[in-house]
């Protein structure tokens, strides 16, 4: 450091002191307004992308239908399996459809709303992230709304159809609690997947080509959850319960609705934890995002 004035010089590796100041600079009121600003910016940018897409109407219809058909093949594969077996991992077709539909719908919602965060690495590499940083709107909202693609509704539609089929087929006593479990599961599941998307996107601030790792967890996790936990090894089930808590998306709540035992010896109330897990995941994802953005702003790459 050439300059001797203590006022002008800050240590090169920003200390924890500066960091805590940065956090203190966001009192609760400002955090709330950041949230509303973010949602507002998200809405505006998503609307622009929808209008952009609509300039190629035929292409939009084609890709939406394609997205529907391609994801439908997933479930058709399961249907084909059931022409040869009566149960998969001890589960009937209807039960599998319930699991599948819940996972696919949650994933589809998260993908629609924040799936674009997986493109962050590209924006970092070509420098276009900078153009977002000079706008008066939260960067996460801008990145999440980037290339907002309504065609992803194709996947959600397919998920909801399979879920509907599953709900109509399974033999469950539809008590009020069981009825409430379904929307709770879908919303919490979408939030958990959204958190994974955002955390994965944050990781791309450091490793710009990490989109594949992110895909393995998001798309891979979605595929995993479409089957009952009994078909997987216990260690894997443990991993998706406690490490990347994807099991809370559908397995734990759905198995409680179906009155099935969870392969791990967990207390019953675990089935009602998804909202808590979802909020926790989102909070961690936001911390990761902030750390990533801070790192980008200190390294520029």
């Amino acid at each position: 450091m050439p300059s001797p004035e203590p006022l002008a010089v800050e240590p090169a590796g920003r200390s924890t002191a500066t960091r805590s100041v940065e956090l203190d600079a966001f009192p609760t009121r400002t955090r709330l307004s950041t949230l509303t600003d973010g949602l507002r910016a998200y809405g505006m940018i998503a609307a622009m992308w929808i209008r952009s897409t609509m300039t190629y109407r035929a292409s939009f219809v084609m890709t939406t239908v394609t997205s529907f058909v391609v994801t439908a093949f997933d479930f058709i594969a399961i249907l084909l399996m059931f022409t040869h077996v009566d149960a998969l991992g001890g589960y009937q077709l209807g039960e599998i459809a319930f699991l599948y539909g819940a996972a696919a719908t949650s994933f589809g919602l998260a993908d629609l709303l924040v799936g674009s965060t997986e493109r962050l690495g590209r924006r970092v590499r070509d420098g276009t992230l900078d153009t977002l940083l000079v706008r008066p709107a939260p960067v996460l909202a801008q990145v999440a709304a980037d290339r907002f693609a309504l065609r992803r509704l194709g996947r959600i539609t397919q998920g909801l159809l399979v879920l509907g089929y599953g709900l109509g087929t399974v033999h469950v006593e539809w008590t009020l609690l069981n009825l409430l479990m379904v929307p709770m599961m879908l919303v919490s599941g979408a939030l958990i997947f959204a958190a994974v998307f955002v955390a994965g996107g944050s990781f791309q601030f450091w490793a710009q080509d990490a989109a594949e790792v992110q895909n393995a967890i998001t798309y891979g996790g979605n595929t995993l959850l479409q089957y009952p936990p009994t078909v997987f090894a216990k260690d894997l089930v443990r991993g998706v319960t406690f490490v990347v808590p994807l099991a809370f998306v559908n397995w734990l709540p759905a198995l409680a609705v179906l009155d099935r035992p969870y392969p791990l010896d967990l207390p019953h109330w675990f089935a009602y934890l998804p909202p808590v897990v979802a909020v926790l995941c989102c909070w961690l994802a936001l911390l990761a995002w902030r750390a990533g953005l801070r790192s980008y702003r200190s390294t520029g790459s």
Binding site: V9, E10, L133, V134, P136, S298
Partner: peptide
């Protein structure tokens, strides 16, 4: 413009520290 945080020194635009109050 506040995109990058300086490693040292003092910087002000219109009296604002860009790194801290980017938006």
């Amino acid at each position: 413009t506040g995109i990058l945080t300086p490693s040292g020194g003092r910087l002000r635009v219109a009296g604002i520290d860009p790194a801290r109050e980017r938006t």
